[in-house]
Amino acid sequence: MSTDPSILIPAVVTLAVFSILYRENPVFRAVERLGVGLAAGYAFILIVRTGLIPRLSKALGAPFDPSSVLLLLPLAAGIGLVMSAVGHRTQLARFAVAGAAAIGAGLALPLLMQALVLSQMKASMVPMGLSSVVGFNALVIAICVLTTMAYFSFTREPTGIRALFAISGLYTLMIAFGATFASLAMSRITLLIGRFLFLLRDVFHLVQ
């Protein structure tokens, strides 16, 4: 067994977290709360120390550029956010949130159209048929796309032929979800393998 603190400390916390599998206990709770504080502090330092400070010091140190005055606006709004966090509600904070949402929406609007709508539409428009494997697969994909789209209808209940489409859409979705569930299970198993490998190899030296 390893006695190196860089192995031993992680081993102890790993086992502490695994203890929840037996039952709820204070050790698990303690480690969990410690982790929350550490993670918040870690993100804070990365953002402030490697992001904000170099940018600000560069802006202050560089020769005066009229366009950098524009940066004062979001900076003021950001200060408004910090003030509202300590209890002083300011209008600046409202501008900060509204501005961020507007920029986010504006940037997303054409890109969502392009990446999720137009590209996906175009990819469905390929020659298809029953004579070749490629054509057959393309046909199945197209049917799946059309039925899945028909499954979601918000203005009125699908009836007749539309209901048939909607039902097929549900079944198509279930196939996709089944495949995804299996892949997800696979990915989670890997995480566990990682932890076990750490315990068995690095801590207890049971495997090479």
Binding site: S119, Q120, K122, A123, A176, T180, S183, S187, R188
Partner: peptide, 14 residues
């Protein structure tokens, strides 16, 4: 990561 693979298959096709 494995869990998101199938959902991204359609981006590979495009």
């Amino acid at each position: 990561s494995g869990g998101i693979g199938p959902a991204f298959q359609s981006f590979v096709d495009t």
